[in-house]
Design a protein around this nucleic acid. Structure first.
Lengths: 190, 190
DNA sequence: GCCCTAAGTGGATGAGTCATCCGTTTTAAC
DNA sequence: GTTAAAACGGATGACTCATCCACTTAGGGC
């Protein structure tokens, strides 16, 4: 699992592949490695060497957004009000899920099947568990809800907002936040 | 859209195809028409003639479950308490979505892209709108929630329950109902 | 019961996608 | 400048998909 630093040309190619893949994801085109390779004017084998499956490539595309979300979660731990901290973080999570189409599949996948984002997801889980624990301790949230429920629930909300409308991203985000509020109303113990 | 009655052999084949497809869906195998044809010992062309796409075949597989759900919705309209009627129907819907893997994709698809279940989905929407209207009139539910929100939300809950666990169906159904209750707590105005 | 035709059948086939293998090129350490 | 390791790329065979058309079968009219 060490990282023998990449050769210059390899790094350049890897970068370019992710960049092209990002466009595919944003446009909603299926992420086919052969196709990405052609678009990038890079040999198929090179793409396959860097990313053995479309999922692995998608992970790399989603990486920055997930990193940002992890920082956000760790920052939320500094917010004194446990309910606000939890709510604001969840809103940010929904926004990320709906803004970046690369993210939801990565979260829906089993953590241990991920090559690049497994650690990040674990960090996120840790921070989030802490947020939840505080909320539980403060008695502001339904006591039966665990961290293991929340990831699926967030994915579910994002899914719902996407099913609902092939509309523009902004509108989808609005719906997602509305759905989150419905759920939070159900969870909140004032 | 008329139905010139099917020849006996054609009916037999069609039946057999759906039957085999049902097994694929239950086992979670991908529904590939060529593959289904081989398993059914039926020519590929025959399968394609009856069902031009995997989605169409899936619709046929899901049909009975959806019919049952529609009857259930129309029956719910006879329940005097608007909140109970809505809640019980939604629980039935979640159970259907989680019990029969053929159903969720059909609900997630746009109604007008469906050949076989479009009418049923419209009937369901009508009955459900009525259930919601009553609940609104009785003031027992958040007034901002519309029928157009509920289908996605139900799909979202089913999705969440499925992401959560590659566990056995019973357990998934339990989670789904729990998630539904969380949502309903958020929607209920006592 | 026999014939005729419309309806139905099946599998060979070409188009398209996927992922590997291996001969060639590039990098960077010495 | 030399050399070994690392990276490259595209030709290729395995596989999936869906169509076409020559053949078979059902069942109504006589």
């Amino acid at each position: 699992m060490s990282t023998p630093p990449l050769r210059k040309d390899a790094a350049r190619n890897r970068h370019r592949i992710v960049e092209i893949a990002r466009r595919y994801v944003d446009d909603g085109r299926p992420l086919q490695l052969n196709d990405v390779a052609r678009t990038a004017s890079i040999g198929v084998a090179t793409v396959y060497r860097h990313f053995s499956t479309p999922e692995a490539l998608l992970e790399a595309v989603a990486l920055p957004a997930i990193e940002k979300l992890v920082r956000r979660a760790e920052h939320a731990l500094t917010e004194p009000d446990p309910w606000m901290a939890l709510r604001d973080f969840l809103a940010a999570a929904i926004e990320t899920l709906l803004t970046d189409p690369a993210v939801p599949p990565v979260f829906a996948a089993a953590t241990d099947s991920l090559e690049h984002t497994g650690d990040l997801k674990r960090r996120l889980a840790t921070a989030f568990t802490e947020l939840l624990t505080r909320a539980h301790a403060a008695g502001v949230i339904d006591s039966s809800v665990t961290e293991a429920d929340m990831t699926p629930l967030m994915c579910g909300i994002a899914y719902a907002a996407n099913v609902h409308s092939a509309l523009d991203p902004t509108e989808r985000a609005t719906h997602g936040l509305r759905y989150l509020n419905l759920l939070l109303t159900g969870l909140h113990r004032p």
